[in-house]
Amino acid sequence: MSSVIAIVCFLVLAPFLGGFLDGLDRKISARMQGRIGPPVLQPFYDVHKLIHKQTIVVNKAQTFLMLTYMAVQLFVGVLFFAGSDILMCFFLLSTGATFLVFAGSVTHSPLSTLGTNRELLQMMAYEPAVLLACLGFYLAPPDHTFVVSELIQTPVSAILYLPGFFVAFVFILTIKMRKSPFDLATAHHAHQEVVKGITTELGAKNFAIYTITEWYEKVFLLAVVALFVVNANPLSYIAAVVVALAVWFLEILIDNTCARVKWDVLLKVTWVVTLLAAGVNMLILMLVF
């Protein structure tokens, strides 16, 4: 029963939460840069406007690919909040992300294709850390399980056993949340802000789909961050929310203080951090427990 509530909450509330966080993000970023910034509800106004426009495409397949992308990512979130297998969730998440890549490349547009290539590279960069985080959850004592509904029942928070995995996961979150220095795939064009890599050819309704899916995904990812903290004690949920928000704020801070890097730096740094933080943590876990 509680899983049904969780699923419904996720489906209904996640876009509002995601959009609200997005608005705050823009506000905080603006303040960091000494601007006033748009209203907090601006993302909702944007999406509202986009949804009511006609469908504009370069290739008709875009719409169906974007819808599939959204449906699969939503499905992943549902599986997660239903307390299913976390490794399965992440394997499905990459399959879903592939549909976004297809939607970017199907246009044969230069900027979009460039963004697609970069998106693929980013996926390659963050995939190991994501999979390793799942393995970390499994290895954390006391019971070996990938099942989310069992993971939230552990007596102590997983983060105590998984600091390295946590670091690696937060590190790749910068990529997943499309934050500088790792926002290659949606990097702004030199002179025009509307041209954003993989999303270049996503017009009107499709762009709304993209934005809403990003909101869902953001909530899902922050929920995974929270999973590091949650344990059998109900009070841990408060701590989890605090940690998730702290991570979210950290990402904004990183976004505003770092210059975008080149693709090879992105790949190398991410893999090295993954290997050192998560890999070493895993080694210790395997040797000790």
């Binding site: 006609q54 469908t55 370069v58 169906f64």
Partner: peptide
Amino acid sequence: AYSTTKNIPANQKISY
């Protein structure tokens, strides 16, 4: 997704 979007009218533009 394919069958529902197949017949939705879409304004086709050239790429940027």
